[in-house]
Design a protein around this nucleic acid. Structure first.
Length: 1108
RNA sequence: GGCGGCUUGGCGGAAUUGGUAGACGCGUUCGACUCAAAAUCGAAUUCUUCGGAGUGUGGGUUCGAGUCCCACAGCCGCUACCA
């Protein structure tokens, strides 16, 4: 392959141009203060996620994002922006250290070698990076500022009043003690069970556990002292401030879910026998004061719940096995069982705990708690389905309304009390719905329907299936109904025209939802709950089954009836309904010795549209009692047993029911919808001192310590006497790791640095912290350092920071809300949560402390899609489908690789590699080359004789060229590179076909192709005498005049089907177009024997003639 | 289980946001050049019983639907006892 003839001499000119760009510093970005800095130019900061320089070298996935940003950067530069497009290395990391341990080589050596390879590879692709700004997170100067930023966090706390970070010196001034301050620092030391990996010899963040386990390392839980960041204080801001960012909605959602905000309450459960004066939450700060260990904490167990409205249904409690109170509350009889259970859990990995989750396990502690709302004694259990890491590590179990609690209660035969009932109402049906046009029921399409109006629309068709619902008369007073109808009519009058979604919802709330709400409140007599009445209705429904109709399913609920029924030919729904209603009302009155209306006039009915719809209706009916939380009398529920539906559930309610509904069996909450019941319960809890409103987050504080050699050491020292920690002076930064021969993990949880005894010993009084920072530390702020990479006085200069955070006018192509520093950030989804969350956190802290003017780092985020192997599988060495970019460059050139990766498909999509596709794109580049160049007898390339410096006389060629400028410009802004390339191919094909290639127009094509294929275009431009370099030329603008044609082709449709095309003058009046459209032979043929009903003219596009 | 994404020729993918479905490229076929091949150039290429049919399936809205609405299915990704 490599010896095959090159279609154009890329192997000669590509390296030459790369050297020129290097030597000339073509892509150097001037900073404020530089001699060539032009303050009038708007800034544009486009950033790639910097790579971890692994030993394997560049992967074809890397250039995907890098080419995209390079195209944008190059285009923006030529559009007059001061473009910052830097590259660097995320060079700390476990693989380098693991490799070092294996080979005995210092990780710095391997890291530097890897960086060299990466850099060579990136340069061979011709990316326009400003290499003067290259940084590596392992550079001592970079480490200095990483440590400096850590110290800013260490010296700060989160001020609850302002919602911002502030220096702890404020608290010192207020007279806080050392202990109190340490308890609120953003960086704090904490003893907690952590994920300790014995063979890596380090602690891992929860998020990292799976990754390393999958690589075959073991991880266990173990309590250790660790440095933590109080990122949870920023949870709300990390959610809220996501909103204005131009990120993919999916990524925003991922972050929100990760932070996992949930609203609810903490409920305090007293343990009897021990008096609790007031319930105090021992884990929270009160009035912004530092936490005070509660004196009564051991008397009270606090549980977090998102459903305080179900408190009446809480029939037991469950603690996590690790919960600190377990040993205290366990009774003597249960002690052995509890202890052995805890032991069993500890030996289970998280994976086992989670994966084999179907079978619930647990042990009774022997202790009881008091349910504050009804003073009932409820047993306290421990079980591993409750996690110590979320909420308070204790739950109130409501088995009737929580799946997990339900399973547990069933297994251990704990009481189940339903306290929420499904709000009754009609099932969801297609709202947009003239159900009458269903071909399922009438293949002829000729639909004999009658619409009868009786309170509500009443559609009828012969022999169809219906779903009918009607209610007891006293379930809704007529005057109420009438009043609501009037209000609805009024509202409709005030809202003419089409309704927005919101208005539709409002409209629904005004009437249908009101009826449902009313009924759900359990109003009315619910006399059908009486088995006698229930049976009357059921037998009436069955009476004509098989004679006048076939019953599909029905259910008799306490205050309403649902029936799915297929009418026999010739039957009339309203008559059938009437006979049911009149017979049953007579019988019910007789049975109850009453008189008067039993049923409401109103009934709801709809045609069942399809077998599938029928299935849904039957399912709805069969589940209805259970969902509503009621039972029906035997016989009151019927589902035809023929089509694979689950058998009728009889009278047993199906629990758990975890949706919202209406409170029942709940004292003062009865009848309230869930939302209101929640609020009322929280109010009650707070007024009684039995609980507090609480917003809980899934997000945990960030474990920032690692026990490794190859990471930034913490710039902290410990007082050997007092055991207090403090910062080393900033003048001592950077604090580098000592040179060590042996950096193997020791198994000592303090990490390998403990072996460097001299280094540790800071003074006689102090010794150094031996933990190091995780890889995230460097990647959290690298985008800041790029702005000012050689500044030795600050992590980023103030002027520089202000310039690169700026919001100059007129830069709207990418991202329209410039509130963040980086305008465009491109990288893989794998960093969607952690890296981006951590970087945002640091950025916000630095912003709060006054070091940054923006509060978010990345304005627009784009995730490039994964490139799969040629077999459609993920590329991997074991599958042998890995494509090496070096080989592609060798065989086809850098431009071809760049162009192919952009031509494969949309940047964000997952797509398979096709080597044939690279060839295709290479052919395209060769065609561009041959438009300008031809080979003489000797095989030497010379400028083609077709290429002439003459005005372009070919109108259509001129049009294509300007269309191309327009489309490529727009498509780059949209990051739709594949379509831009396709347009340039069209343009090139036009040049290839042309007899004479006008120099000026051809140069325009080169000009827009330049960001995609910089080497080829610069080389051709040089050979044909173009000056200056394209990289220094302004971006071309298209000529609107060249796009306009005097005549346009218009499509003629008859009844929406394409039948002919006509050519008309660009500004022909509508009438002329209509006439011309009807005049053609083909159209005449189509219209023969038909009457033209309507003609639709879409200017410049089509004519549609509607005729029957 | 939850959340998110995707579904258009033999393949990768276009489609001006409701207006000619299949741009562009790959592959395939035919032709030109050539002793021949490669390379290059040109033509054709959704299916079709030549009436039409056709964007995962079924319905709906519309003069008109790949695009909007409803329901369903199938793939892929992430996440998982989150109380």
């Amino acid at each position: 392959m490599s010896d095959r003839r090159k279609p154009f001499p890329f192997d000669e000119f590509e390296p030459r141009w790369q050297q020129l760009w290097d030597a000339e510093k073509t892509f150097r970005t001037p900073n404020p203060g530089d001699a060539d800095f032009d303050a009038s130019k708007p800034k544009f900061y486009v950033l790639d996620m910097f790579p971890y320089p692994s030993g394997a070298g560049l992967h074809v996935g890397h250039p995907e994002g890098y080419t995209a940003t390079d195209i944008i950067g190059r285009a923006k530069m030529r559009q007059g922006f001061n473009v910052l497009h830097p590259m660097g290395w995320d060079s700390f990391g476990l693989p380098a250290e693991q490799y070092a341990i294996k080979t005995g080589q210092h990780p710095r050596v391997t890291t530097e070698a890897n960086i060299k390879t990466f850099k060579r590879q990136l340069k061979s692709l011709g990316f326009g990076y400003d290499w003067d700004r290259e940084i590596a997170t392992t550079d001592p100067e970079y480490v200095r500022w990483t440590q400096w930023i850590f110290l800013q966090l260490y010296k700060s706390y989160f001020n609850e009043e302002t919602g911002k970070a502030a220096p702890v010196s404020e608290l010192e001034a207020k007279g806080w003690t050392r202990e109190q301050i340490d308890a609120v620092r953003l960086a704090y030391i904490h003893e907690a069970p952590v994920n300790w990996s014995p063979d890596l010899g380090t602690v891992l963040a929860n998020e990292e556990v799976e990754e390393w386990k999958s690589k075959g390392h073991t991880v266990e839980r173990r309590p250790l002292k660790q440095w933590m960041f109080r990122i949870t204080k920023y949870a709300q801001r990390l959610i809220d401030e996501l909103d204005p960012l131009d990120w993919p909605e999916g990524i925003k959602l991922l972050q929100k879910n990760w932070i996992g905000r949930s609203e609810g309450a903490e409920v305090h459960f007293d343990i009897p026998g021990i008096v609790s004066p007031t319930a105090v939450d021992d884990w929270t700060e009160v009035d912004g004061r530092p936490p005070v260990p509660s004196k009564i904490a051991e008397h009270v167990i606090t549980a977090f719940t998102t459903r305080p409205d179900t408190l009446f249904g809480a029939t037991y409690m469950v603690l996590a096995p690790e919960h600190p109170y377990v040993s205290e509350i366990t009774t003597a009889e249960q002690k052995d069982a509890v202890e052995s259970y805890i032991k069993a859990c500890a030996s289970k990995s998280d994976l086992e705990r989670g994966d084999l989750n179907k079978d619930k396990s647990g042990v009774f502690t022997g202790a009881f708690a008091i349910n504050p709302v009804n003073d009932e004694q409820i047993p306290i259990w421990i079980a591993d389905y409750v996690m110590m890491g979320y909420g308070t590590g204790a739950i109130m179990a409501v088995p009737a309304h929580d799946e997990r609690d339900f399973e547990f209660a069933k297994k251990f035969e704990l009481p189940i009390v339903p306290v929420v009932q499904r709000s009754t109402g009609v099932p969801p049906v297609n709202p947009g719905s003239p159900t009458l046009h269903s071909p399922y029921y009438d293949p002829s399409g000729n639909i004999p329907t009658t619409a009868t109006e009786r309170n509500l629309p009443h559609w009828q068709q012969d022999g169809r299936s219906y779903f009918v619902t009607w209610r007891l008369a006293d379930s809704l007073p007529q005057e109420k109904l009438n009043q609501w109808k009037l209000e609805r009519a009024e509202w409709t009058k005030n809202h003419p025209g089409e309704l927005t979604d919101d208005q539709q919802a409002e409209f629904h709330d005004l009437f249908s939802a009101r009826i449902d709400d009313w009924l759900d409140q359990g109003m009315g007599s619910c006399l059908l709950a009486d088995p006698a009445c229930n049976r009357i209705v059921a037998s009436a429904l069955r009476h004509f089954d098989g004679e006048r109709y076939d019953l599909e399913a029905f259910v008799v609920m306490p205050n309403h009836v649902h029936v799915a029924v297929r009418l026999h030919e010739g039957e009339d729904l309203s008559k059938v309904l009437h006979s049911w209603k009149s017979f049953t009302s007579k019988e019910i009155n007789k049975a109850r010795e009453t008189s008067g209306e039993v049923w409401q006039d109103e009934s709801f009915d709809r045609i069942i549209r399809s077998p599938r719809h029928l299935g849904a209706v039957r399912k709805y009916i069969s589940e209805n009692p259970a969902k509503a939380g009621t039972t029906v009398d035997e016989g009151g529920l019927y589902v035809k047993e023929s089509n694979g539906l689950p058998p009728s559930t009889g009278g047993t309610p199906v629990l758990p029911f975890s949706d919202h509904g209406t409170a029942i069996n709940s004292g003062f909450l009865d009848g309230l919808p869930t939302a209101e019941a929640k609020a009322k319960m929280i109010d009650w809890l707070e007024s009684e001192g039995k609980g507090v409103r609480r917003i809980n987050y899934k997000l945990r504080d960030w474990l920032f310590s690692r026990q490794r050699y190859w990471g930034e050491p913490f710039p902290l020292i410990w007082n050997k006497q007092t055991g207090e920690h403090e910062a080393i002076p900033e003048s001592e930064l950077p604090l580098l790791q000592p040179d060590m021969e042996d950096f193997k993990p020791t198994g000592d949880p303090r990490g390998p640095l403990v072996k460097a005894t001299d280094w540790i010993n800071y003074t006689d009084q102090f010794e150094r912290e031996t933990n190091t920072m995780p890889q995230w530390a460097g990647s959290c702020w690298y985008y800041l350092r790029y702005c000012d990479p050689r500044n030795n006085d600050r992590f980023i200069g103030e002027d520089v920071e202000s310039y690169w955070s700026g919001t100059p006018e007129g830069q709207s192509a990418i991202g329209n809300r410039q509130s963040a520093m980086v305008d465009l950030y491109v990288g893989g989804t794998e960093h969607a949560v952690l890296h981006l969350l951590y970087a945002r956190f640091w950025h916000k802290v630095l912003h709060d402390l006054g070091h940054l003017s923006t509060n978010e780092p990345f304005q627009k985020l784009v995730n490039q899609g994964l490139i799969l192997g040629e077999d459609g599988q993920k590329m991997s060495k074991s599958r042998g489908n890995v494509v090496n970019p070096d080989e592609v460059v060798r065989d086809y050139g850098a431009d071809a690789l760049r162009l192919y990766e952009m031509f494969m498909g949309p940047l964000t999509e997952v797509k398979p590699w096709q080597m044939k596709g690279v060839e295709g794109v290479s052919r395209f580049l060769a065609r561009v080359w041959r438009v300008a160049m031809e080979q003489d007898q000797a095989g030497e390339w010379t400028v083609s004789s077709k290429l002439q410096d003459v005005p372009c006389t070919d109108k259509s060629l001129l049009k294509v060229v300007h269309e191309t400028i327009k489309k490529v410009t727009d498509d780059i802004a949209k990051m739709s590179f594949n379509t831009a390339i396709s347009q340039m191919m069209v343009c090139t094909n036009a040049f290839t076909a042309a007899e004479v290639v006008p120099m000026k127009e051809f140069t325009l094509l080169l000009s827009v192709l330049n960001p995609f294929a910089p080497h080829l275009t610069e080389e051709i431009n040089r050979l044909i005498g173009g000056k200056p370099q394209l990289a220094h030329q302004p971006w071309p603008e298209h000529d609107e005049a060249a796009l306009i044609e005097s005549e346009i082709e218009i499509v003629v449709q008859v009844n929406g089907k394409l039948r002919d095309k006509i050519t008309v003058a660009k500004d022909a009046p509508k009438e002329d177009i209509e006439a011309a459209a009807q005049a053609t032979d083909k159209i005449q043929e189509q219209l023969a024997g038909k009457t033209v009903r309507k003609i639709i003219v879409v200017p410049g596009r089509l004519v549609n003639i509607v005729a029957h």
